[in-house]
């Protein structure tokens, strides 16, 4: 096997400039295995990994949104507009505007953003409703124009497949036959699935039968989606395994600094981060389980 994380050269123990230093390798192994330990049962290792992930994620996203949404969009924007010479054109949203207009418009946006925060202090105030109304309006307009085209008009057009002309019968033969057959299945499935959601009329034999075909079509679709979802989850599991296998390389082994050449590769692998972390986690789970059982026995 050739894991993606394989490194021949020994990494530095702590080096923020490298892609993966020694500390990073131990952390990757601990957090990966701690999260998977939840499959056995909820435990302190999993909780630690969960809290660290949420904390680190929140800090990272807050910084990114500050950089791009506040610092870049307000301060730097205004700074650029101020530094633009009078009479020069400033570009805003694809339009050339006067720098003063650009500053005013951005200040209005900033004020609207602050008004949104007024909900924290005045829950029923009108102040938060104005920016919210603008946001909903803009978002609805954007969605209506773009999505109507892509998710309705062009989808309807896409469902009208041209019948392949053939010499051999109605459906043709060979590849043309399968192509035409798939169009027929698509059309029948589409109509039946749509009719399944018609509740205006009472379900008689005809509509009930069509609806049944629609349900089967929908179930096949959901089955396909489930299959794809499982495919994705397995891809993540295998990638994690690949990654952990990379950290069993001699470069990450505890023997690496001492005498990696003299030690057998199998021993070297066994005292690498994934195996040691896995051993500690298993031991920890067994100890907590044993202490849990003795607590419940003494309580009873």
């Amino acid at each position: 096997m050739i894991p993606l994380a394989l490194q021949q050269a020994a990494p530095e123990f702590f080096d923020l400039s490298s892609n993966m230093d020694g500390v990073g390798a131990w952390m990757v192994c601990f957090f990966t295995l701690a999260v998977y330990s939840f499959l056995y049962r909820d435990n302190a290792f999993y909780k630690t990994a969960e809290h660290v992930f949420v904390g680190a994620g929140t800090a990272f996203f807050a910084l990114q949104y500050y950089e791009e949404g506040i610092k870049g969009a307000i301060w730097e924007h205004i700074e650029r507009a101020v530094n633009t010479a009078p009479g020069e054109i400033f570009e805003l949203g694809g339009y050339a505007v006067d720098p003063t207009v650009a500053i005013v418009l951005r200040c209005i946006a900033a004020v609207l953003g602050l008004m949104l925060l007024s909900r924290l202090f005045l829950p029923n105030s009108w102040m938060a409703r104005w920016p919210l109304a603008i946001m909903v309006g803009v978002y609805a307009a954007l969605k209506m124009t773009g999505e109507t085209q892509s998710k309705l008009v062009l989808q309807v057009k896409g469902a009208m497949k041209p019948w392949a002309t053939t010499d051999g019968g109605l459906l043709g033969s060979g590849e043309v036959f399968y192509q035409n057959l798939s169009y027929v299945i698509l059309l029948v499935g589409l109509i039946c699935a749509l009719l399944h959601f018609v509740f205006t009329f009472q379900r008689g034999k005809t509509l009930g039968g069509i609806s049944r075909v629609g349900v089967v079509t929908l179930m096949i679709t959901f089955g396909s989606m489930f299959g794809f979802t499982v495919l994705g989850r397995y891809a993540l599991l295998i990638e994690r395994l690949d990654n952990l296998a990379g950290f069993t390389a001699p470069a990450y082994s505890l023997l690496a600094s001492a005498d990696s050449a003299g030690a057998s590769s199998r021993v070297s692998q066994l005292i690498s981060p994934p195996w040691i972390v896995a051993g500690i986690l298993v031991l920890g789970l067994l100890i907590t389980r044993a202490s849990g059982e003795s607590d419940s026995a003494s309580a009873s």
């Binding site: 990114q64 949104y65 949404g69 949203g93 694809g94 773009g146």
Partner: peptide, 18 residues
Amino acid sequence: FLPGDDVAMGQIGGSITS
């Protein structure tokens, strides 16, 4: 990175320099 999801995409499409 440009925050704003759909709005950001529309903005990039409209004018990348803006």
